[in-house]
Design a protein around this nucleic acid. Structure first.
Length: 763
DNA sequence: CTAGGGTTAG
């Protein structure tokens, strides 16, 4: 049972003992008392505070300035007011105090906290006597503005003048190493820390954990944390470790640590709740997250923006869009993270259009954007393929200067790839100095998207990736495998699969799933089955891949066996499973089974039929010689306005040679897609297949008159490890002559049709 | 005899 704190921690006033120096001096003038109160003001940056400081400082005596100025300086720092700081600086110069070590330190500190490193450096340079505090203040200043190089320049200068590092310096330097590129330096400082006996210092230890956490050295954070003695551990280092366990995907460990913290007598703070709730975005932890939300409320931290932001993300990741929206609306002081979390939740849950409109609203409430926000919005653009919006964001990215940011770059590549603009995608890729596997994977999306024989280039891209020493990941391999699956190139698929195994991705479930499909589509159903059986664990996609594999190979019975085994193993069939099983029935002539499955899919499996299911049934009924029923099904379905379903009917009429229904279907298809070349070609082929060459030519003429853009149909076949490409009506293949001769021969055997028609009938 | 250091959410 968790004991509750009696009051809202945030509402507890500051400890009055902190203002004792001012309270003691009752005889001092009113303005001074006022200034002391200001030191404890919760809002030191307000205009009235600044005014009070100015009015209390400037009429004062030299003596007053000498004795009281640290408090005044401190308040100026709180104000973040550069001009005020400069005025005080001028006063100190006027009275000749600027070279005093103590006052100089304060000035360096003040300018450093205001991010005015030029001024801080100047004061520093002019000082005659510097101590460790001076050096640390300057280094900390450079750290604040993320100028790591300068931090270490100052540090090495400090070494040269013979000043030793203490715990404070180590802590600052370690923070400067908090990124993957500086971890090696951080490790050296870690050695120094151990040698100098600073390991016991909780500040140093916390900085070490933070450094290793940011640098991606998860194991090292655990080791450092384990090395801190129990009575030294405080809320801050616990918070950090909770966050670290969350990052490493060890949600349970994070929760245990959180419970440790509660039972150890330490008070959790807003950081604690932000971190522990953030852990609950893991997919099994929604209920825990809800409980923690309640607990945060009891402790009085649930109104903190950071806590609410974490809750937004948690709901977003669990698909609870309404809860997410409610939480967002409840935040009184929404910041950039709140907005980004909301946008990301929308994008993730297929509300990309909503995300874009909220982004506009966000801009209108004059919140600045950063790289994380921009990449989220770009993901939204990719999701709804809104290139126009994306182009504007791209413009802003260039303007604000985030083009070299790898996350923004990846999102841009993904956007262009999704919109089939591979040229621009490559341009962005080549412009990135630090590339990750995700950048290359984003381009691969484009190859899937454009669905043409340019897939050859995917392997070229892969070799570029290898040359640039960017390690491929599981996503790379599953995408490459599914690309080679669509190209039906077994040799290529096999070599990619081998490469995946060699590089340690062979056991990844998404790679294995892609391999099943690859082997099936490349004609090797036995390898697909072997792959399936060799996996340690299956997910729904694995089962779907196997059902679909058998369906594709016309082995409907086996597809059904897998379908049943899947259910025995406790996996619920989804819409893809049902669709694959239906396709299995369709290609294997299991008409009754298919019709039966279609009828019971909603009552028995809770899967509502969507367009693809209806289209598959139209195909099935047509092949079963029940075309009137197929037409009936379309008319009674919610998809009677869908081109796909009529295209399917035309196609199946073509297969069965049903002229009257084919005509009906053709009319519907042309009504729905008067500007799609593919429809005209299909219908023309339908007539050609019936030997009605005049009708076929008429449809072709209609299409030509409309000057519709059309993509040539193509197919590929692999012979002796070489992929041959055939584009409709192209004569590029070196053996074109022989191929057409053979087509003539086949045509003759089929009953005297000429080669062109055979060709048309085949594609 | 004042002053310098560590944690958060997208």
């Amino acid at each position: 049972m968790i004991s509750l704190l009696p009051t809202n921690l945030l509402q507890i006033p500051l400890n009055p003992s902190k203002s004792i120096p001012a309270l003691k001096s009752k005889q001092r003038n009113n303005s001074l008392n006022f200034s002391s109160e200001l030191l404890n003001s919760r809002n030191p940056s307000s205009k009235s505070t600044r005014f009070s400081i100015v009015s209390c400082v400037f009429p004062c005596e030299e003596n007053f300035l000498y004795n009281e100025w640290p408090q005044i300086l401190q308040t100026s720092i709180g104000c973040g007011d550069f001009l005020l700081g400069q005025s005080i600086h001028a006063f100190l110069v006027k009275f000749g105090y600027q070279n005093d070590t103590f006052r100089g330190n304060n000035l360096v500190n003040l300018y450093a906290k205001l991010n005015r490193l030029g001024e801080a450096q100047r004061v520093f340079d002019e000082m005659l006597d510097r101590n460790k505090i001076t050096w640390t203040s300057l280094m900390n200043g450079y750290l604040q503005v993320n100028d790591v190089e300068s931090v270490f320049q100052v540090a090495s200068q400090m070494c040269r003048v013979g000043e030793r590092f203490n715990e404070y310096c180590c802590s600052v330097m370690l923070q400067a190493c908090s990124s993957a590129e500086y971890v090696f330096l951080g490790k050296q400082i870690h050695c120094f820390v151990v040698k100098s006996g600073f390991r016991e210092d909780i500040f140093v230890a916390t900085s070490l954990i933070s450094m290793y956490s940011m640098g991606g050295c998860s194991d090292d954070t655990v080791k450092v944390f384990a090395g801190i003695s129990v009575n030294e551990k405080d809320v801050r280092c616990m918070n950090l470790m909770i966050s670290e366990y969350g990052k490493a995907g060890s949600g349970e460990k994070a929760i245990w640590l959180f419970l440790d913290l509660l039972s150890s007598g330490l008070d959790p703070d807003d950081y604690t709740f932000t971190n522990i709730i953030s852990v609950c975005k893991e997919n099994t932890l929604l209920e825990v997250g809800r409980q923690l939300q309640g607990l945060a409320m009891k402790y009085g931290f649930v109104s903190e923006t950071s806590v609410r932001n974490a809750i937004i993300t948690m709901y977003g990741k669990h698909g609870l869009v309404e809860d997410m929206e409610k939480m967002f609306q409840a935040i009184s002081e929404k910041n950039l993270v709140s907005w980004t979390a909301l946008l990301s939740g929308y994008v993730r849950n297929n509300y990309a259009i909503k995300a874009l409109s909220y982004f506009v609203e966000m801009l209108n409430s004059s919140i600045y954007v950063d790289s994380s926000c921009l990449s989220t919005v770009l993901d939204g653009c990719s999701e709804c393929k809104n290139l126009d919006f994306g182009l504007q964001i791209h413009g802003s990215v260039i303007k604000i200067g985030y083009l070299s940011d790898v996350n923004v770059g990846t999102a841009l590549i993904h956007l262009y790839a999704k919109c089939s603009n591979l040229q621009s995608a490559r341009l962005i890729l080549n412009g990135l100095s630090h590339k990750t596997a995700a950048c290359f994977n984003a381009i691969l999306v484009g190859f899937t998207e454009i669905d043409s024989h340019h897939k050859e280039d995917a392997l070229f891209l892969f070799s570029q990736q290898r040359e640039e020493d960017v390690y491929p990941d599981a996503v790379t391999f599953s995408q490459l495998l599914s690309l080679s699956a669509n190209q039906a190139s077994l040799i290529r698929g096999k070599s990619i699969h081998a490469c995946a195994i060699k590089m340690g991705c062979g056991n990844d479930i998404s790679v294995a799933n892609a391999a099943i499909t690859m082997y099936a589509k490349c004609g090797s159903i036995d390898d697909a089955y072997l792959m399936f059986r060799s996996m340690n664990e299956h997910d729904t996609i694995s089962w779907n891949a196997m059902v679909s594999a058998y369906a594709l190979h016309g082995q409907g019975r086996r597809a059904f066996l897998i379908f049943e085994e899947m259910q025995r193993q406790g996996f619920a069939p989804d819409k893809i499973t049902i669709l694959s099983a239906l396709q299995g029935c369709c290609y294997s002539g299991l008409w009754e089974d298919g019709i039966c499955l279609f009828n019971e899919m909603e009552p028995k499996y809770g899967v509502r039929a969507i367009l693809e299911h209806f289209a598959c049934m139209v195909d099935l009924l047509g092949r079963a010689g029940r075309i009137p029923e197929a037409l009936n099904l379309i008319k009674n379905s919610p998809y009677s306005e869908s081109p796909l379903i009529w295209r399917t009917l035309v196609n199946v009429c073509k297969l069965c040679g049903d002229l009257s229904f084919g005509k009906i279907a053709s009319k519907h298809l042309l009504d729905l897609t008067p500007e799609e070349a593919g429809s005209y070609i299909l219908i023309s082929n339908f007539y050609a297949g019936r030997g009605m060459l005049k009708e076929a030519a008429k449809v072709r003429t209609m299409m030509n008159d409309l000057k519709l853009p059309k993509e040539a149909g193509y197919s590929t076949i692999e012979v002796d490890n070489k992929v041959h490409l055939f584009v409709a009506s192209s004569k590029d293949h070196p053996e074109t002559k022989e191929i057409y001769a053979k087509l003539d021969l086949i045509g003759a055997e089929m009953g005297g049709e000429d080669a062109e028609n055979v060709f048309l009938a085949l594609i």
